[in-house]
Every structure is written in structure tokens, then in C-alpha cells.
Write a protein that binds this DNA or RNA. Structure first.
Lengths: 197, 197
DNA sequence: CATTTAGTGAACGCATCGTTCACTATTGAA
DNA sequence: TTCAATAGTGAACGATGCGTTCACTAAATG
């Protein structure tokens, strides 16, 4: 076993350990209470190593969130079961929000005002775009099958379900549960997009 | 003039001065950067006076937001022009978000995880309920006139427009503009609730 | 006018930030 | 194999803001 005693890690090895530590802290104490020293200690790294890489706590956590985000993006193939596909994807998003990743998002919201615009924009689209792409794919498939109205391809509509999930997560302290997903679909999304065919 | 030289204010007089100072700071530096000393200085008050009233920064700002919130609640009478009424109310909400009040909301989101549940729930419903009531009134009026489907009275649907406004405000750094309000109405809310009559 | 109540302002101890520095482990080129 | 160069460690540091305390003072009460 070459890795049993890492001795002293460097580069990506160390960086990933720091990310994992940051996400773990995030999950345990919530964004507002993440301490740099705690992250360093948990990663068994020096505080200086953190500040060598990121200028402050906000940036470190953004980087950790981004690292995590790139991990989870699934390729999704519509099955033909419109509602079933939507349920699956929405539950996936809710589950993501329940993870440290969700806590990172919450913290990022709180700091929006004091972060450079282009940075927030970058992170925002990085999260939003993959979701939009998946929903767009599902909707396009539905349009092709005649189950979804063509107007549903408008960006605002495509982004509707994720927006509602996110709004709920941010204003309540927890993600939407399965019953909530059903409600959103049955009372809002499906009536809006479905042809009734 | 009895108030030209306040000498030393007490009670509500002082309290309101502190609230105004807190909201001004909020607007200037954003939630994350509000300093107790700055609020005290701006209100020309002692820091001890703040801590005598509220246990910490989060509570002070919550109190200030609540103080402001009670100021702004309008009684709204539906005019019969469904879309026009919705535009009016939605723009009002967007304007509120552009004020210090909006910044307070943003900060509150960031701290949700580390605040007692009943307190956040109280504040949440305090903001949500009046809005729901207004939209419900408009929708009920529409149902009575036959322009709105009865299904639109479902809570999720009633809360849809405010939820989208809030989601936009939280994830972008600014409130929805007038064109955005139109888009939300034309592509989501109206198609969903309107009878087409 | 005397007493009580409430606010002031400065000082304090504490936690955490972000930085610095002397030291050490790892790497890879000579 | 040796030895610079590179990258990480750990402890210490000054600065900042928190939340508290206390001696002092202004306003209200009676």
C-alpha cells in the first residue's frame, strides 16, 4: 500500500483532502460557522497551505463546492415517461441540496453582495446550466412525442422546477421531500407544460 | 423645537434610531459586513445599548427587518384587471427587495442553519403570509369573475409568483426588473392560472 | 431636590482572521 | 547518490470585531 502513510501530501492530493474537509465542516457546522483552522486541522494540513491556495474562506468554500459540483453531473437520458423523469431529476436535486453542497450554496447566497459579480455569475451558471440542459432535454423529448407544449422550451419554464426546489431549500431550512416534488409537478409544472395528450 | 437637540434619547426613540442605522448599514455594506460598532456609531448610541436590547447581530437585524416589514404592508383591492394587478404587486415586491429589507432577507438565508427553527419559521411566515393573502385575494377575485381557474387557489400556485421573485433576487444579486415581471407572468403564471376566458 | 432608570463610552478578554517565518519533507536534476 | 528547488508544516503575530463590564451621566419620577 503506497498510500497508507501519506507522510506529507502535495498538490492535488492535498487539495482534495482540503476540499473534503471543508465539505465535511460545512455539513457539520453550517456555512457561517466554518473555521479555517478547523478545515486545516481536519485535513491535517497547515493553515498556510489553505491561504496559499485561496485568499479567504468564501473562495475556499466556493472552490470546494465547484469541485463537488463537477463530480455529480449525471448524463440523463429521457425514458419517455415524462413525469417519471421529472420526479427522478428533481429528487436528485433535492438530495444534492441535503448534502454539504447545499450548505455551500446557502453560504454563497449570503455573501453575494460582497463578492465580485463575475465570480458569482460564473458559479451561478455553472450550477444552473447543467440543470437547464437536463430539463431542456426532457422537455424536448416530450415535445417530440407530443406530450409537451413547444412553449415549454422557454428558458423561464425550463428553469421553473429547479428554481422552486432551490427557493424552498433556501427559505425553509431543508430540501423539498418526495411529496413536495409531487405537489410541484401536479399543481404547477405538469399543468403548465403538458399537452394533455 | 423640542427635538432639535435630542440630548440623550431613550426607549422607542433610541430603538428606532438604531433600526434606521442598521438598515442604512445593511444597504451600504451588505449583511455580511454590518458591524455592531458601525451601527452604534451611526445611531450615535453606545454599543452597550444595542446588546442590552438584542443578544447578537443576527437578532438586531432581524428586529430591524421586522420593524421595516410592518411599515410596508399595503391593503390591496383587486381592480378586476387580473394581469395589471399582478404586475403591480410583483413590482412592489421587487422594489422591496431592492431596499435594505432585501439585504436583511439575504443575510437571514445565510444564517438559517444556525438559528433556532421557531424563530426562522416565525420570520418566514411573517413575510410570506401577507403576500399569500394578497395573491389569494387577486386569484379569488379572478375565480369569481371567471378569469382564473379554481385550481389556482392551491397554496403552491398562490405562492408561485413571490417564490420566483425571491429566487431570482437571491441567486442573482438584484431583484427582477419590469421586463422580468412580464416574462414570469406571460410564460408561467398567466398560462397556468388563466381560464383563457 | 433626591432617587431611580436608562444610555454612554471606554476598556477588556476572547476568538478568528490572514500573514509571516524558520523548519522539514518530497521531488527531480546533476 | 547527492543536493537544490519546491511545497507543506506549525507556531507565533498583529489586527479586527465580538460580546461584556463598569464607572459615569442624563433624563424621568415623585
Amino acid at each position: 500500500m503506497t498510500e497508507s502513510t501519506p507522510g506529507r501530501r502535495r498538490g492535488d492530493d492535498l487539495e482534495h483532502a482540503i476540499f473534503d474537509a471543508a465539505l465535511a465542516e460545512l455539513a457539520e457546522v453550517g456555512y457561517a460557522n466554518v473555521r479555517m483552522e478547523a478545515v486545516a486541522a481536519r485535513a491535517k494540513a497547515g493553515k498556510a497551505s489553505l491561504y496559499k491556495r485561496w485568499p479567504d474562506r468564501a473562495r475556499l468554500i466556493q472552490a470546494a463546492a465547484r469541485y463537488k459540483a463537477t463530480e455529480v453531473e449525471p448524463e440523463f437520458e429521457p425514458s419517455g415517461d415524462l413525469r417519471g423523469d421529472l420526479v427522478k431529476v428533481m429528487r436528485h436535486i433535492a438530495a444534492q441540496q441535503a448534502s454539504p453542497f447545499g450548505e455551500a450554496i446557502r453560504g454563497w447566497i449570503g455573501e453575494l453582495r460582497s463578492t465580485p459579480a463575475e465570480l458569482t455569475e460564473e458559479l451561478r451558471t455553472r450550477i444552473e446550466n447543467p440543470r437547464i440542459r437536463i430539463f431542456a432535454k426532457i422537455f424536448e423529448d416530450g415535445v417530440a412525442r407530443g406530450t409537451v407544449k413547444p412553449e415549454a422550451l422557454h428558458p423561464r419554464v425550463v428553469n421553473l422546477a429547479p428554481a422552486l426546489l432551490t427557493h424552498y431549500f433556501l427559505t425553509k431550512a431543508e430540501p423539498v421531500d418526495d411529496a413536495g416534488v409531487d405537489e410541484i409537478l401536479d399543481h404547477i409544472v405538469m399543468p403548465l407544460i403538458s399537452t394533455g395528450a
